[in-house]
Design a protein around this nucleic acid. Structure first.
Lengths: 179, 179
DNA sequence: ACGTACATGTAAATGGTTACATGATTGA
DNA sequence: TCAATCATGTAACCATTTACATGTACGT
């Protein structure tokens, strides 16, 4: 397993919270880090198999009911996870299709750009609302521990980021509508 | 050439401004849309060949001096570009390694997260500064046309986005340092 | 009995980076 | 003449999505 492949670390990170199946992992990635990370089954299942082969996770087949493949992180897996958590971060590589279309928009009608930006704003607004709700839930949760604000911090990142994007959309729409 | 592949549209978009070589395209992508889009030679050269094969661009070999392969957009290419510019946008797929490391940070020392966020802030701050300078240059440019503010708009998106990230970094650092 | 969600995977295709190979031109 | 940068490309590899295949369990 190559060091750079990040899929494995999301899986290890979630398995470090509690053992679960590939199916659970897919859902939990969406629920917990879905705003800034995603994985498909085509990545998850092969990566789990690979992680098991090198001993970073172990598999047990659920006895009762359905034959679910439950994965647990091993001591070795925890070590590798912690190591990765401490390696320097790199800036995310973004590829924003809206901005590309806006940048090259000189040869098409202004209304098209307006429509694109409006659509972007709507979708961003929706995400912003969801993140605000999540923030509220975290803060109201009786077990919220201010010494471990990591989940809250990532949600707040999303709130600020989407907020800025909405601000830009409003500005951009105003400017384009005045043309 | 598949419709969904976006590399071709950046190339068409830039060739629509003026004819240039693959090497130029690489540099110009960086200079113009580099903040939110990038391409490697491994994508550019094969895509140019493909675009020529289907008649969206044409190639002429520079006569004088170096034998540069200069590509121009064709009428058909312009048509395809315009069509794409009008198709609905999709939200960018982000994968933020910093947030992943912060999210899973409960099992490692707080100082590690602080270091990560500080590094992120520094890099973001630098980009923010560059974008502010570009904005100033655009606005001061005598040929700036307020009826075609597309370049300015993308730069301003970057300024607002990086600004929000810097705000978050400061908040997050303050919170973590108080633990 | 039927639909929905649970559940696990694989194969093919696509997307994208990196390393390599090669050589020309320019300026100090 | 040497280094830098201009310039074009390919091959190998890595990353990722999508479509497909297959079947189970649960609630109504």
């Amino acid at each position: 397993m190559k060091k750079e492949n990040k899929t494995q670390y999301v899986l290890l990170g979630l398995l470090n919270i509690h053992p679960q199946s590939g199916y659970d992992l897919k859902n939990n990635i969406q629920k917990t880090v879905g705003y800034f990370w995603s994985e498909s089954y085509g990545q998850i299942y092969p990566t789990l198999a690979q992680l098991e082969k090198v001993g970073l996770v172990s598999k047990t087949v659920q006895k009762s009911g359905r034959q679910r493949q439950i994965y647990s992180i091993t001591a070795k897996g925890r070590k590798i996870l912690k190591q990765w958590l401490q390696t320097p971060i790199t800036l995310p590589k973004i590829r924003n299709e809206l901005l590309l279309k806006v940048f090259f928009a000189s040869s098409i009608p202004t209304e098209v750009s307006i429509k694109h930006i409006a659509a972007y704003m709507e979708q961003t607004q929706q995400l912003h609302g969801i993140l605000k709700q999540i923030e509220k839930i975290i803060l109201q949760h009786p077990q919220y521990n201010p010494k471990k604000p990591y989940n809250l911090l990532t949600v707040q990142f999303g709130i600020l980021a989407t907020g800025a994007e909405m601000t830009w959309c409003k500005q951009a729409l105003k400017k384009l509508q005045s043309i």
